[in-house]
Write a protein that binds this DNA or RNA. Structure first.
Length: 699
DNA sequence: TTTAGGG
DNA sequence: CCCTAAA
């Protein structure tokens, strides 16, 4: 039997392999080759694309400086009008002075459009998306997307809806489809938001021909929406996880509404915040535990909590992990283009705004100063780190913060790091070894992709000496240099854990800039340098050991640490479709039970998310399903015909196995008896397993 | 690494 | 889907 039906597997491009059975090594080589062919799904390419986009965007940003300038100025002005106008940062001609511009400028509508055009016109992305979107002629459209916070128990949006090639998916299915698209394709960053009442749903076309024009005539309308709670989010971009909540241009700032205004890129704010701290010189962070709530306070500063916001798009089950380190925050936020700023009712806007932009501490060093200091202080080690940060930025950050980052770091990074670097990816501390996996296959969904992601930069050179990097809080005197940059300069690989809840992975964490209180591992239930993760060892990558006994941590004890079992993320449940079941049944009919690796290679070779263990498990459940009454069955109904085949195949191969066992037993006994007679000859040498023969024709 | 089986 | 002993 041949798998006639080629199963089009969403975006995964699954198809029945036509690989002849060969030696194991040959087969593996072939597998790897295919994996290479599918690099569009790989992290490697992801990094490449990110880099390319970054470069293009950087160029475009330079060329569009004039345009952006005014908008940025307007933004600054708006902010000051909306809040408490202080000294004007506008020069007389209406342009911002350089200083304020260098702070995270708000991306304007034009910026959005421009970015959209850049991204859309990116050949890299186009190719990426085209391939991903089935044959390159398809469009992906998102319509009528609804609030993302209506999550069901599985953490999926209940009512999200999108159209893909005319097929409408809902809820879980829709999410599954979206999540199959790897990061970097520009799709997965779609946000799910309530469409505006007065406006038709935002609709984005990403077809090959849909460039700026197609984008443009849709973007402004949504971007011009007034509040963040009624903005149809059109943030889409490989890395352009720009805010779904556009800045209210003509309206007053609104209090942050978590239900409807959720940042997709908590990481962006964290990073932004971290970078802000580079410039803002955090003064004596302290942690105090009051009423079970951990608070981080600056001297004379009220630190607005962003983690609360950033975790909003994380499924509830994960969200609770944040609780113990949540910073209480009674004041609202309004999001604006990647920037949070304090609402009007913030009694102390300057203090409330720990992010750059509106209220600049006069003591903040200028960008140039920061730049200079960074350049001076950052060794090659730090450069890698920065490049890593840059990569993360490219995936997560808003336009504005990226621009800031670019201006600050890009030159230095590119100057120092010329060679190619491999970006290793960690998920929940586990090295993602298979670069050919999509993010979803790896277990990174848009829900969690930033809460437990870590990256390593793995130099191509032979530098592999693992150096422990004790990255931590800023030491006195190093106020400007981000703590992580003080890692000992070495060719080691830096492991950066980028996650909202850093405490889920304390032993592997290099804290981001200024994330002092994320590294409180003193009371970790296991030693900080215990290598829990084999992948870390195997890849000889840097195991981060956080320093203990830091002053500001001495008083810290974490109320509870997630046990290790909680740290490893469960894979996303991906129910078998009928087509998959059919393929499985066919394969098992041919190969038999007990040869799951071959079944995998035969029928699911291209479905990277199905392991042979999965197939074995599925077969188990299939057998069980076939034996129970149809009323007791759940999930997508499997055709009775298939279930019958399952029973038949199972019975047959069970019988075969029994026969085989009996044979072997007999042989053993025979050999044993021969041996006893002093005639120890193997009698099984000429035997050929017929199941092997069968399998030869399978694939 | 793969299989087998319990959870 | 996870975990893990055993091969």
């Amino acid at each position: 039997m041949v798998l006639q039906k080629r199963i089009e597997y969403g975006f995964n491009g699954y198809q029945a392999p036509a690989m002849p059975r060969a030696s194991r090594s040959v087969r593996r080589r072939a597998v790897f080759q295919r994996a290479e062919d599918k690099q569009k799904c790989s992290f490697d390419l992801l990094a490449t694309v990110a880099g390319k986009l970054l470069q293009e965007r950087e160029n475009a940003a330079i060329s569009s400086d004039t345009l952006s300038n005014k908008d940025q100025c307007r933004f600054v002005k708006d902010c000051h009008d909306a809040n408490k106008p202080s000294k004007s940062e506008l020069s007389e001609d209406g342009n911002c002075d350089k200083k304020s511009l260098n702070e995270f400028p708000r991306p304007s509508i034009e910026d959005h459009a421009k970015i959209a055009s850049i991204v859309t016109s990116s050949s890299c992305l186009e190719r990426f998306v085209a391939k991903k979107l089935v044959d390159g002629n398809s469009h992906i459209k998102m319509e009528n997307v609804t609030s993302e916070v209506k999550l069901d128990s599985s953490g999926y949006p209940k009512e999200s809806q999108f159209k893909l090639d005319g097929n409408t998916g809902k809820g879980k299915d829709a999410m599954h489809e979206l999540e199959k698209i790897p990061i970097g394709s520009g799709i997965e960053m779609y946000s799910f938001r309530d469409p505006p009442d007065e406006n038709p749903p935002a609709l984005i076309s990403l077809g090959g021909s849909a460039k700026l024009s197609g984008y443009n005539d849709r973007i402004p309308r949504s971007l011009l929406s007034k509040g963040c709670d009624n903005v149809p989010v059109v943030s889409r971009d490989d890395d352009e996880n720009s805010s779904g909540c556009t800045h209210p241009i003509n309206t007053k700032t609104k209090a942050f509404r978590p239900k409807n205004c959720i940042d997709d890129s908590g990481i962006s704010k964290r990073l932004a915040s971290n970078f802000q701290k580079v410039a803002q010189k955090p003064k004596h962070d302290t942690l105090s535990n009051r009423d079970g709530i951990w608070k981080k306070t600056y001297h004379n500063q009220r630190k607005c909590n962003k983690s609360q916001i950033s975790q909003m798009n994380i499924p509830f089950k994960k969200r609770k992990l944040f609780n113990y380190k949540s910073v209480s925050n009674s004041s609202g936020f309004t999001r604006s283009g990647g920037i949070y700023y304090s609402p009007k009712n913030c009694s102390n806007p300057d203090a409330c705004d720990s992010l750059p932009g509106m209220h600049r501490d006069p003591g903040i060093p200028s960008l140039e100063a920061c730049q200079h200091q960074m350049l001076c202080r950052i060794g090659s080690h730090g450069m890698r780190r920065l490049r890593e940060q840059l990569f993360m930025y490219s995936l997560t950050c808003s336009v504005s913060s990226k621009r800031f980052l670019h201006r600050t770091v890009m030159d230095a990074v590119t100057a120092v790091l010329g060679g190619e670097l491999h970006i290793g990816v960690f998920l929940q501390g586990k090295k993602v070894r298979d670069d050919s996996k999509t993010l979803l296959q790896t277990g990174i969904s848009h829900h969690n992709q930033f809460d437990a992601l870590g990256f390593t930069l793995e130099p191509n050179s032979s530098q592999s000496l693992p150096i422990v990097c004790a990255a931590h809080s800023p030491c006195p005197g190093a106020d400007v240099t981000p703590p992580v940059l003080r890692c000992p300069s070495s060719p080691a690989v830096i492991h950066q854990s980028i996650q909202g809840n850093s405490d889920t992975l304390p032993e592997h964490q290099v804290t981001s800039f200024g994330s002092q209180f994320e590294s409180d591992n003193d009371s970790a239930p296991y030693p900080a340098n215990t290598s829990v993760d084999k992948g870390m060892e195997d890849s000889k990558e840097l195991v981060t050991v956080l320093e203990k006994g830091r002053e500001e941590l001495a008083m810290v004890s974490v109320p509870q640490k997630p046990r290790r079992s909680e740290m490893v993320q469960r894979r996303i449940r991906r129910p078998f479709s009928v087509d998959e079941v059919e393929a499985l049944v066919q394969a098992v009919e041919k190969l038999g039970t007990g040869r799951w690796r071959d079944v995998k290679l035969c029928a699911f070779d291209n479905a990277k998310h199905r392991t042979y263990v999965d197939l074995k498990d599925k077969w188990k459940t299939l057998v069980h399903t076939a034996r129970i009454s149809p009323q007791q069955r759940r999930g997508e109904p499997v055709p009775q015909e298939l279930l019958d085949r399952v029973l038949v195949a199972h019975a047959y191969w069970s019988h075969q196995q029994n026969k085989q066992q009996q044979k072997q037993q007999q042989q053993t006994e025979t050999v044993f008896s021969f041996n006893r007679k002093g005639q120890g000859l193997s009698s099984a040498s000429g035997h050929v397993d017929d199941s092997v023969l069968v399998s030869d024709f399978c694939c």
